[in-house]
Amino acid sequence: MNNLQNPHLTEDELDEVLMGFASEDATLHVAACEPCGARLDVFRSQMAVFSQASMAWSDARSNTISRDILAHKPTRRLTLTTVWSSAATLMLALAFSLTTALHQGPRAADSAVVAHPDHDQSELASDNEMLAAINSEFGAPRQAQVGIYENVTAHPAGARSAVSLQVRN
């Protein structure tokens, strides 16, 4: 509580009441003091409205998603390595095209600019290959890291099955 001039709870004390770890004095004060109770109610009522609306929204959205979880393909994390390897592939492809064009002289360089069916095909194939690699990084299934999701408490029985468990992705 503040002091004799202001006997009400401080904002920090009100926060502690809301978080559920206030002192006994603060809890008793709130129960008996209308102004402090009203200050808590402002937050509680707004939070209640938010919880209700967001849950209703989520319910509606959840109903639009497939219930067939087993058909769901887990996403794969895009790692620094995969991004750099994709970028490196692109750079190599560009460098190769440029070097080839320059070594073949002005006429060949001109033809590299002018549309050429064979060149378009190889470029297209190279682009598709790179896009497929990126797509597979985004969409390919991966082995789940079951260990991360195990409960914290040590338990020999759980340890056994965690070791033997193969995740079906």
């Binding site: 959205r61 998603i65 769901h72 079951v146 999701y149 992705n169």
Partner: peptide, 27 residues
């Protein structure tokens, strides 16, 4: 949506490692 589906699938696939030390919701 994707993370939620991933989460449910991982939980289902790893259900043998759930030891009941916490609620299913917490897990």
């Amino acid at each position: 949506e994707t993370i939620t589906q991933d989460c449910l699938l991982k939980a289902y696939n790893a259900r043998l490692s759930f030891r009941g030390d916490s609620s299913v919701n917490t897990w």
